[in-house]
Design a protein around this nucleic acid. Structure first.
Lengths: 217, 217
DNA sequence: TTCGTCATGTAATGGGTTACATGATTAC
DNA sequence: GTAATCATGTAACCCATTACATGACGAA
């Protein structure tokens, strides 16, 4: 149906489901805790999105066929179902993985916006190094723009701003500066990763399969 | 008419117009620079809001009656009109001032949300000390909640988050902690102001009223 | 047996942005 | 004379939240 789901929500859902299949309720908690940091996502957004992704064939309901009562059942996604109530556990389809790669590979302007950045960053483990760098640098230059405009506002203080507004600007500027320094460190670290590793001749189109990454920061 | 305008936009408009009359275009720049820091407000939001406030009688179009060509004309709001084109310069009415006081005095939960806080803070110069304290403390406890939930997420790291997600959380936590420290300083400073000054016209802490506007009510 | 949490969903609503339309004024 | 900026506005759309509705399950 509607092509209305936002790219960041879609990315969050696909990315999390790729790590491990889940039902909606759990997914929502993960989104707000793993990616969110910020505000909680409401079910009114999540469930419709899941329905669309399902209709588009990017995700599928999991019928946990294996081990009807084996001891290892509770391991993968927590409990797959509870009592008699059938939980709708979603998993990523092949198409979904493709779409996820597409979204992860874009790294365009949407990825250095406030919202998008956090989500993209959270999935860096599944992202190519060059894309990681592109996103980090894009984000940085976005923040540098903001720094400049705050500095400009601070400079023309002749515009009679009271001390509170001034303090607000000062603090905001410091926050942004701090974040830029953080990005600088990350970028340096990524550059190192990007230059040294002729180790794995694999990854023609990209990312190696599992998330069992060790790549320290 | 629609009771649809958001409280923070209304506050921003009223608060800025109280400082100095302005037309919409200028107002928008001020909102995004003085209050915004964050993202720009679009005209599609601002103008309808102005129309509503006008209809509600909280603001009025200024007909600069005084001094048709006096030398002091350009001082207050920049040029009041430009060439032959009549700019719609809005000013706050008496009702508007009342409403502004109402909004400034509330200091409820809306004022410690991310958006609301910045706007309320920017107008602290026109806010009573006790309300300022209430807002700062409310904001702080909001941030402390967030800190707790991030810490919780960090603690249960057993949940196999990769190093990037971890780093994201770590950085997010530090940001919030930093902001809490900032609030602590502000609160301490406000407490001092609140305790000492029954008579003192000068406030030695550096925060003084400055809204030295002439009330043209 | 009642309350809290888990779990899934829908409809209405809200409030913002984008895109569009228009035109005057200033700077080059 | 033409491009950029100033200036005002409307309509369509986007997408998230809120409020509502439902029900199973575990614990007190």
């Amino acid at each position: 149906m509607g092509r209305n789901r936002s790219a960041v929500l879609e990315l969050a859902v696909l990315g999390l489901l790729r790590r491990t299949p889940m039902h909606g309720y759990e997914l929502r908690k993960q989104i707000t805790s793993v990616l969110g940091l910020f505000r909680a996502l409401s079910y009114g957004s999540l469930y419709p999105c899941l329905h669309e992704l399902l209709a588009a064939g990017l995700i599928a309901e999991e019928h946990d066929e294996a081990e009807p009562d084996g001891p290892a059942r509770a391991a993968s996604a927590g409990r797959a179902r509870r009592g008699g109530r059938a939980l709708k556990v979603y998993r990523l389809t092949a198409d979904g993985k493709e779409r996820l790669q597409e979204l992860l590979g874009e790294g365009g302007p949407a990825a250095w916006e406030d919202d998008g950045f956090g989500v993209h960053f959270a999935f860096f483990g599944q992202t190519r190094v060059d894309v990681r760098l592109r996103i980090l640098e894009g984000r940085r230059s976005r923040l540098e723009e903001r720094m400049e405009s705050i500095r400009a506002a601070l400079t023309r203080t002749r515009e009679r701003v009271d001390s509170y507004t001034l303090e607000l600007h000062r603090h905001g500027l410091e926050s942004v500066e701090r974040e830029v320094r953080w990005l600088n460190e990350l970028i340096a670290s990524e550059r190192q990763v990007a230059s040294e590793p002729p180790a794995a001749p694999e990854s023609p189109t990209g990312i190696q399969e599992n998330t069992s990454d060790k790549e320290s920061s």
